[in-house]
C-alpha cells in the first residue's frame, strides 16, 4: 500500500513534468491556464516560472553587444560535431527543451555547449594564464611568466585583432563606468599601450630580441584581460 504522502508527491511530480513540457510554449505566448494553475500550487515551478519571466522581460533591455564571431563559430563547431545542433528551433525550445528532454535528465548537451563556450572564452582571453592556479611546479611557473615567448606571430596578430574588438567595445561603453574605475582602467591602458609601442619599436630594430618579444606578447595578453575585466564590471 502506497503511503498517502508518497502518492501526493508522485501526483505533484507528474504535474511538474507536464508543467515543464508546456513551459516553452507558454513562454512563447501560448495561453496555458493549466501551467499557471500548477505554478500557483507548486513552489518550485512558481520560482522557475518567475525566473524565466524575469529573464524574458529583462533580456530585451540588455545590450546588443556580440562576442567575437569566432566564439560563436567555435561553440557551433563543437555542437555540430557532437550532433547537438539540428534544424533551427525557436529560442525557448532551444534553451528550455523540457518537452522531450529534461535539462536534468540530459545535461550532456548543455555541459558540452558550456565547456565549448568556456574554452573559447578562456582561449581568447589569456593563453598564458591557463596553468596558474594550482601551485604549479617551478618549471611551469617559469612558463607562466614567459609563456608568451612561445606565441607565434600568427597568434600575436590574432590577439591584436581581439584587442581591437575589445577596445572598440570598451570605448563604446566607458562613459557608463564609475569615474574612479574609469580613471584606473585608463591609466593602466596608457601604461600597457606605452609598453606595446616601445616593445614593437624594439622588435622592429632587433627582430631577434627575445626579451622584447616576451614583453610584447605579455603586454597584449594583459591588455586583453584588462579590457575584458572593464567590460565585465560595466555589465554588472
Amino acid at each position: 500500500m502506497i503511503d498517502e504522502g508518497v502518492e501526493e508527491d508522485m501526483k505533484l511530480g507528474n504535474a511538474c513534468e507536464k508543467f515543464e513540457a508546456n513551459l516553452a510554449s507558454y513562454l512563447e505566448g501560448d495561453s496555458n491556464p493549466e501551467a499557471l494553475s500548477h505554478a500557483s500550487e507548486c513552489d518550485f515551478c512558481r520560482c522557475l516560472l518567475a525566473d524565466l519571466d524575469l529573464i524574458r522581460k529583462v533580456s530585451p533591455e540588455l545590450g546588443t553587444e556580440e562576442p567575437p564571431a569566432r566564439v560563436w563559430a567555435n561553440v557551433r563547431a563543437v555542437l555540430i560535431e557532437e550532433g547537438i545542433v539540428h534544424d533551427p528551433v525557436s529560442f525557448w525550445r532551444r534553451w528550455a527543451p523540457w518537452g522531450s528532454r529534461s535539462l536534468v535528465r540530459h545535461p550532456a548537451p548543455f555541459a558540452a555547449a558550456a565547456a565549448a563556450a568556456v574554452m573559447a572564452v578562456v582561449l581568447f582571453k589569456a593563453p598564458g594564464y591557463l596553468v596558474h592556479s594550482n601551485a604549479p611546479p617551478a618549471n611551469v611557473i617559469h612558463s607562466v611568466v614567459f609563456t608568451q615567448d612561445y606565441m607565434a606571430p600568427r597568434d600575436i596578430s590574432s590577439l591584436r585583432l581581439t584587442i581591437q574588438q575589445l577596445e572598440q567595445a570598451y570605448r563604446a561603453n566607458e562613459a557608463s563606468l564609475e569615474p574612479s574605475m574609469k580613471a584606473t582602467y585608463q591609466k593602466s591602458l596608457d601604461s600597457l599601450d606605452g609598453e606595446i609601442r616601445e616593445c614593437e619599436l624594439s622588435m622592429k630594430q632587433q627582430p631577434e630580441n627575445d626579451l622584447a618579444r616576451e614583453y610584447l606578447s605579455t603586454a597584449y595578453v594583459q591588455k586583453a584581460e584588462l579590457l575584458q575585466s572593464a567590460l565585465e564590471y560595466n555589465l554588472r
Binding site: 596558474h132 601551485a135 611557473i141 611568466v145 593602466s188 600597457l192 609598453e195 603586454a219 594583459q222
Partner: peptide, 9 residues
C-alpha cells in the same frame, strides 16, 4: 618556496 610576480609600471 615559489613566488611569481608581475607589474607593468
Amino acid at each position: 618556496s615559489r613566488i611569481h610576480a608581475r607589474t607593468t609600471s
